[in-house]
Design a protein around this nucleic acid. Structure first.
Lengths: 205, 205
DNA sequence: TCTATCATGTAACCAGTTACATGATTTT
DNA sequence: AAAATCATGTAACTGGTTACATGATAGA
């Protein structure tokens, strides 16, 4: 799977919106926010412009006109090219079909959890549970609210994110219980496993 | 929450390993791989060195000796400083306690799924399901295998990742069903919702 | 009228990635 | 003994972020 020339997900959004009608970068950002896309794709004003440039360099979009009124700085309006449309669809298909290896921050935290005392670990995990539960509630009500105006089809990402968080909360609860009941601190007899050990400290030469 | 001066998760791993004993960067990478940390933290050889430099700049680690034999290039061995230990623990706590806003690739894909025909969307989602299921099986057996040697405590990240994937698979199945049975294509009467619509195309000025 | 915020963009900076380099081992 | 791979690192490049700039509108 050869690298995509422009890989920032913002570029995907740009292609998608320019598919509807030509716009200038600032407008793209504004529309994205209106539609709640900012929740699933990170928008930095700066990145909007660098991504746009990159798309132009690769002939996936092209400038079509420059607006010049006294109210604003010059604004360049872009439109998608045929190559851009193709790229958009291929990219989209690939995002949906192929799971992408990611490295969530929490996984790294978990990997080193053994460095903390069990008591503290439990407290932190419980706290995370609370925060996540709040997130869940928030997303849920955001969906409810938006669903009156917008088709469910355009809320799937939110639903997805909701589902994932719920799954995490559930797992966290179980984990906390397991720590409390000693599953992790006592094991096969006396061995207290909750300390840093070196599974096999054989070093490279 | 002020920015961390070195934020790459590789740096967390470096701090953690140097907490055990001084090492040189290449060795750090090797040990990480042995322990399966490479699954939760992305290792680029290059990044190992830039991260190390950054940690030195911030006095979280320091060079302790330079090995010079004829077999290898010079190797600089680093040790963690007291400040580094503190930083490590604070960082770790924060990773566990506070959910971090992330932008998974798949969410972006979902957000634009409406650009594809329902038929195709279903096919792609089904394919993803298959691939994910394979992942799940793989992780599961990796855990089984490693659990003979290593304490469960050091496999929690794997367990976490497993759980999340399983949750995704389950959700995907439901989604596919809902698309097939028309939940997304017909809705409140005749309206065919599966097309690009503009929820509220009011543009900024 | 003063201050804040919006609308819009430029430009410098930097973290992190990719590509390259090089001498030892190991494999064929 | 040629080819491949390991061990180790340097250096150039670049995508993306942060910081800054500036005129217009709106609120106090």
């Amino acid at each position: 799977m050869a690298k995509r020339k422009v890989s920032n997900l913002l570029a995907l959004a740009v292609l998608s919106l320019l598919n509807e009608r030509p716009m200038h970068p600032y407008e793209i950002g504004a529309v994205m926010r209106q539609r709640g896309l900012a929740d699933s794709i990170k928008i930095n004003t700066g990145s909007l412009y660098s991504v746009t440039e990159a798309l132009v360099r690769n002939q996936l979009i092209e400038p079509v006109e420059t607006l010049r009124d006294t109210k604003h700085p010059e604004r360049t309006v872009y439109a998608v090219t045929p190559a851009g449309r193709t790229e958009f669809l291929e990219w989209l298909r690939s995002l949906i079909r192929t799971p992408f290896k990611e490295y969530p921050q929490f996984a790294a935290g978990l990997a080193f959890m053994g460095h903390l005392a069990p008591r503290e670990a439990v407290a932190l995990l419980a706290e995370r549970c609370k925060l996540l539960a709040a997130d869940v509630a928030e997303i849920r009500s955001a969906i409810e609210a938006t669903a009156k105006f917008v088709d469910r089809l355009f809320l799937i990402e939110q639903e997805y994110s909701l589902t994932m968080r719920e799954a995490e909360v559930k797992w966290l609860h179980q984990l906390i219980e397991r720590i409390k009941d000693g599953t992790f601190t006592e094991q096969k007899g006396e061995q207290s496993a909750w300390k840093i050990t070196h599974p096999d400290p054989m070093r490279p030469h």
